[in-house]
């Protein structure tokens, strides 16, 4: 059998335009997520609710021996709220991707001239933006309730940057599962696991109040350092290099690792088709 369809035009500038395509796709993906307030709402509401709940439940715990010096438990909980928001948002972004896959996104992807990785990276970029937005909203909200970020403007910017990196790393990791399985249920089902990882860290309570085997788990969980780095900007006046390492470098490493996994999953999926 010979088939002669119209010859595919050769786009020589395809690679130069990959960046532009990625940005355009990212923009579409950001708008897409902002236009679904119902899907986005839980990742804003739940962390704030938790923050308010624990501020009230644990307000007296801030006087416990070993607890860092804070104005209020709410101030202590700011970083936890930002982290939860990023984790929540990342899951919903990845579930979106899985829905796309389920609905035949890959068939379209195969036939489109757009660079394949552009589509995935474009989507992931939206997490960067949503993560930054969440951190800003949370800080604004808690500022209205009297929470101060002690390290000032540099600290605030660092928290925003850190939040978007965490959001990107998490959504990349979750997207790997989305690409591997193509099932929104599986991605949503992963969420409790991720959430538990956050509880097995010092995100919600200082490490000083933890003991026994649990303390060992918390000590080796990178999320602990990430949370402490972010929290450091809130409750410490002095900026330290260690905090920057914890809050910025750890999620950056996470992004790179997750991206490698994700692209490998993408290659495998495309190879199967």
């Amino acid at each position: 059998m010979t088939v002669a369809l119209a010859r595919q035009p050769i786009h020589e500038d395809l690679h130069q335009s990959a960046v532009r395509q990625t940005l355009a796709l990212a923009r579409r993906s950001v708008l897409g997520r902002l236009r679904q307030p119902a899907a986005l709402a839980p990742s804003f509401v739940f962390p704030l609710f938790f923050a308010a709940l624990s501020a009230s439940s644990y307000s007296r715990v801030k006087n416990a021996p070993g607890f860092p010096k804070v104005d209020s438990f709410l101030q202590f909980g700011l970083a936890a709220a930002v982290m939860q928001g990023a984790f929540f948002g990342a899951t919903s972004a990845a579930a979106d991707l899985a829905v796309d896959i389920e609905q035949g996104f890959w068939e379209r992807l195969m036939t489109s001239p757009v660079h394949r990785t552009s589509i995935v990276i474009g989507r992931l970029m939206s997490s960067l933006v949503v993560g930054a937005l969440q951190a800003t909203v949370f800080m604004g909200f808690l500022a209205a309730l009297g929470v101060r970020v002690r390290s000032g403007p540099i600290g605030i910017v660092s928290i925003v940057v850190s939040a978007s990196l965490v959001s990107l790393a998490m959504s990349t990791l979750m997207s790997t599962f989305a690409i591997k399985t193509g099932s929104p249920e599986v991605v949503q089902g992963m969420f409790p696991l991720v959430f538990v990882l956050m509880f097995l860290s010092s995100t919600f309570m200082p490490r000083e109040l933890m003991h026994g085997w649990f303390r060992h788990v918390v000590d080796v969980n990178p999320i602990s350092y990430l949370a402490e780095g972010m929290r450091g900007f809130v409750i410490e006046r002095e900026l330290s290099g260690w905090r920057f390492f914890e809050a910025i470098a750890i999620p950056s490493i996470g992004c790179v690792l997750a991206l490698l996994l994700c692209l490998r999953a993408l290659r495998r999926r495309l190879a199967q088709m």
């Binding site: 644990y58 007296r60 715990v61 006087n63 416990a64 070993g66 538990v196 509880f199 097995l200 919600f204 309570m205 200082p206 000083e208 109040l209 933890m210 003991h211 649990f214 788990v217 918390v218």
Partner: peptide, 13 residues
């Protein structure tokens, strides 16, 4: 498991 570990210190207080 998560609560039991994370909030043990707070409860001890």
């Amino acid at each position: 498991i998560a609560f039991g570990g994370a909030f043990a210190g707070a409860l001890a207080y």
